[in-house]
Design a protein around this nucleic acid. Structure first.
Length: 882
RNA sequence: GCCGGAGUGGCGGAAUUGGUAGACGCAAGGGACUUAAAAUCCCUCGCAGCUUAGCUGUGUACGAGUUCGAGUCUCGUCUCCGGCACCA
């Protein structure tokens, strides 16, 4: 007795084998979910005899309930996981919870419930929801980032980074959300607003912990070349975010002061065109240079305002080291302190911002670059000063008015000028990145405590490894009035210094939750209760190295920069710690599109839920509703569909099928209630076909167990249905393999089902073909709609789980059509189609086409210039015009 | 502004990579079954015209081009969506 049969017997799952007429999804979905759990169908262990496949979907934040975005994400992942399993891979398919975060704390403030309680209750509920979807997770590997067993390792990473000098503390201006009373990363600020609550973000100076991601900037950039399995646009966004630019740092001596002004430029070829210098308002030298305090405050206030250029002449001059010219020094609001040196050389002729500034303040504009082919326009003035320009010339070209470098092309000149500068000690070549170090401090409770203490005597002391985890205290009040709640906790705050034993205070900030999600994918490899990264260092039997990298990662495009970049950074840190032996965590990435729906708005009641609209009128006031555009489903617009309601009404299989059928995974999906009905109809139709022939199919299925008889039989009796089945296997397999185009795969299955429902098996070979077609339809449908496939599989007399059965293979010969439609064109225009035997030679095709009466008539009296044949498809006869 | 991506029926979307445009689904219209409705099944379905068993034009945002042949390739224009945005 097989393992499955045993389980069946015990659990009684297959004891009642009488098929019902009606498709009762509620009954069968529950039945199979229980069955799969019982036999631990989805449990995975490392198995050297099979090729591994790590299928991972981005884990959710346990906000309370799953939404359609999750449904789509996890349906896609589940199809891939189940398909790969049937293809013989040993598939790792885990799920967990990105469980730290602000909503839990907000709930605590609002409702007085502890974040832990709130979070774990949400996890319980959402886990049930995921199970109701029939997802094939190995729950034995579930992780929750808010558990001390997990966040201990965040703290461990922190200590390792601190040891390596890759974690440090500095005072810095941070993006501060007054509403969330916390710090935000640059990436969390969108259009000057908080990504979560849309409040305007202000600048505030705080002591912050940073991870030195810039240490890996170049490597993270180079690594982009290897991300062949990622969507190009995501790779591009990563590259842009890192933002490498090559140039030179040049020292401009300040006239009459024993001081240099260091600037960075990517255009050393324009150095002869410098007519002023600009400093950022926060540049360390500004305080010493300015006289007009009042005006300075104005400029400072306009820092970061994009629309206005505001400057202040300091009265000081710098010396251009190449020309010895005296250059006026300004303070300007548009110069950023955070990039380069915080000071720039300004070349108004060749930089639009400088140009606008120069016009405003009456500064000369000196042209030093001309287009390479500038013979047609007027020659530049000898002094290079240009009054007539209307905009800067920012392209590269040929140098003029540039001393010994005049006449050179920009590219050559850049190299030569950099060398000239370096040789004379005026500066040096320099590479800058836009990428900033990662500020990880958050003034919040519900996150990983940062494991350091502050001792009056010893200063910053890290918590010894043996004392990890530093656990979040329970005695915390959630008032919502600013600052870190941990600072209020008596038990937590006071601590003995690990070094001197004296009085010390704990760090009260917690870590950005992006730390949690930067390594969770390796935690799954180790399993729920055995996360121990330290023992993974140089471990020859490493489970992590066995399963990683992730073969297919699936998630939303919103993580194109943040999460993915941090994960790539952490993977390199883990590599340098000896935990992993690779650099890129995600081999292939699929970014699924958003789930969208039209919006409804009532003149009186504002946004309406779909169920609040009846016949285009508001159910509350009967006013006509305004139909808005199709937008991403969001609670604020109320254009949402509740997965629970959908499962209740149509079942998980229908919900999965529709969300996979309506659009290819990477594209946005527009929700359609009618479309869902279509998916439901399809499943009902299939149910009806199997029900109608259930008795014959059972007999067939048993007979077909004698494989040899079966195969030789169908080979001797090819039929249209058999051919269609083989063609469908080919199409579905190709569609899944080629970029996971599930929508067309499902369309092919619908076609086959249409053929099945029209088919009336009469002769014995018909019944064989029919049985074969049904079996394969179910096998191919099973990753998409697992419950109904498993149920019908049982109904046709199969004894084992359908997911134990390998994915079907097609036979090229049997898939081949006997007759093909030959398109006949005359001068590229379709004139007729004729049915011809497959494999017709080109000459025969030509002859057949020319002999066709209609074509013959058209050719009458004209000269055939040539005939193009596309084998088995088309004949194009090119004739002379009349 | 810069960098990407996209534009195909009433709608969601197909089209073997240069070879029948509109697969599959939805909606719509007609019919069958039914006392009736729902469900189900069958038929029609890009647009226009005609001498209407059919035929002829025309059609993949717009305009050119390459080719025997273009939704697909090239150039130009427009529109929409995303990312970055004073990065020197």
């Amino acid at each position: 007795m097989s393992r499955f049969e045993e389980c069946n017997e015990q659990a009684g799952f297959r004891s009642c084998n009488i098929m019902k007429e009606k498709y009762n999804f509620k009954e069968i979905e529950l039945k199979w979910q229980r069955y799969w759990a019982e036999i631990k169908l989805h449990k995975t262990d490392a198995d050297a005899s099979k090729e591994k496949f790590y299928c991972l979907e981005m884990f959710p934040y346990p906000s309370g309930k799953i939404h359609m975005g999750h449904v789509r994400n996890y349906a896609i992942g589940d199809v891939i996981a189940r398909y790969k399993k049937m293809r013989g891979f040993n598939v790792l398919h885990p799920m967990g919870w990105d469980a730290f975060g602000m909503p839990a704390e907000n709930a605590a403030i609002k409702h007085g419930v502890h974040p832990a309680k709130w979070t774990y209750e949400n996890i319980d509920y959402m886990k049930k929801q995921l199970d109701c979807m029939g997802l094939s997770y190995d729950w034995d590997r579930e992780v929750s980032t808010c558990s001390p067993e997990y966040y201990k390792w965040n703290q461990w990473f922190f200590l390792k980074l601190l040891e390596k000098g890759l974690a440090y503390k500095k005072a810095s201006f941070v993006n501060w959300c007054p509403s969330c009373t916390t710090v935000l990363a640059n990436e969390q600020v969108i259009d000057d607003k908080c990504w979560r609550c849309d409040t305007i973000v202000i600048q505030k100076e705080l002591e912050q912990w940073f991870f030195m991601i810039t240490h890996y900037a170049e490597e993270l950039l180079q690594g982009c070349d290897e991300l062949n399995g990622w969507p190009e646009r995501v790779v591009l966004m990563q590259r842009n975010w890192i933002g490498k630019s090559e140039g030179v740092e040049v020292d401009f001596p300040l006239d009459g002061m024993n001081e240099n002004l260091k600037i960075f430029t990517t255009r050393p070829d324009t150095l002869f065109g410098v007519t002023f210098m600009c400093l950022a308002p926060k540049h360390p030298l500004t305080e010493r240079l300015i006289h007009d305090k009042e005006k300075f405050e104005l400029v400072k206030a306009k820092y970061g305002k994009m629309d206005e250029k505001e400057g202040l002449f300091t009265g000081h001059y710098a010396i251009n080291p190449l020309t010895d010219e005296r250059i006026p020094v300004y303070i300007a609001n548009f110069v950023l302190m955070g990039y380069g040196t915080g000071a720039i050389m300004s070349v108004p002729a060749h930089d639009q911002r400088d140009f606008e500034f120069a016009k405003e303040y009456g500064i000369p504009i000196k042209v030093v670059i001309v287009p390479e082919n500038r013979s047609q326009s007027a020659p530049p003035r000898a002094d290079g000063l240009e009054a007539e320009m209307t905009e800067a010339f920012e392209d590269e070209g040929v140098l003029i008015n540039s001393g010994q470098f005049s006449g050179l092309k920009s590219s050559e000149a850049k190299a030569k000028i950099i060398k000239y500068i370096e040789d004379r000690g005026m500066g040096k070549g320099q590479i800058n990145y836009k990428l900033r170090d990662w500020g990880i401090s958050r003034q919040r409770y519900w996150g990983t405590p940062i494991p350091v203490v502050y001792c009056k005597k010893c200063g910053i002391v890290s918590v010894p490894e043996k004392d990890l985890p530093v656990i979040l205290p329970e005695d915390v009040k959630f008032t919502g009035t600013g600052g870190s709640p941990l600072a209020e906790s008596g038990v937590f705050l006071k601590v003995k210094c690990p070094e001197c034993g004296g009085e010390a205070m704990r760090e009260t900030d917690t870590m950005d939750t992006f730390v949690d999600s930067s390594w969770y994918f390796v935690a799954y490899c180790l399993g729920k209760d055995s996360i121990n990264l330290k023992s993974e260092i140089k471990n020859p039997q490493s489970e992590i190295n066995h399963w990683m990298p992730v073969d297919q990662y699936i998630g939303g495009i919103e993580h194109a920069v943040l999460h993915l970049l941090y994960s790539r950074f952490f993977t390199r840190v883990m590599r340098d710690l000896g935990i992993v032996d690779f650099s890129e965590p995600f081999e292939n990435l699929l970014t699924q599109g958003m789930v969208c729906k039209e919006t409804f708005r009532c003149p009186e009641h504002d946004w309406l839920f779909p169920e609040e609209v009846k016949n285009s009128r508001c159910v509350h006031c009967s006013k006509e509703v305004e139909k808005g555009r199709v937008e991403k489903m969001s609670k604020s617009r109320k254009n949402v569909i509740d997965p629970d309601a959908l499962i209740n009404r149509y079942g998980a299989d229908t919900m999965r099928l529709f969300s996979l059928f309506a659009a290819p995974p990477e594209r946005d999906l527009e929700w359609s209630d009618k479309g869902v009905e279509g998916a439901y109809r399809f499943l009902n139709k299939l149910w009806g076909i199997v029900y109608k022939y259930r008795n014959e199919l059972c007999v067939m299925s048993n007979e077909s167990k004698q494989n040899i008889v079966y195969t030789s039989f169908i080979t001797r009796h090819p039929s249209q249905l058999l051919r269609k089945t083989h063609q469908t296997i080919k199409r579905v397999t190709d569609d899944i393999e080629k970029d996971y185009h599930f929508n067309t795969a499902i369309a092919a299955l619908m076609e086959l089902a249409n053929e099945l429902s029209a088919f009336v098996p009469e002769k014995e070979e018909d019944r064989f073909a029919f049985s074969f077609a049904i079996k394969n339809t179910l096998l191919m449908l099973s990753p998409f709609a697992p419950h109904i496939s498993e149920e019908l599989w049982q109904a046709i007399g199969e004894k084992n789980s359908i997911f134990e059965h390998p994915w079907p293979v097609w036979d090229e010969v049997l898939a081949r059509d006997e007759e093909v439609e030959l398109v006949v064109q005359v001068n590229g225009k379709l004139r007729t189609k004729i049915l011809v035997p497959a494999g017709l030679s080109d000459d025969d095709a030509k002859e057949t086409a020319v002999r066709e009466p209609k074509i013959k008539e058209m050719l009458n009296g004209r000269q055939i210039k040539k005939i193009v044949v596309v084998k088995g498809r088309l004949v194009n006869i090119v004739i002379s015009e009349r």
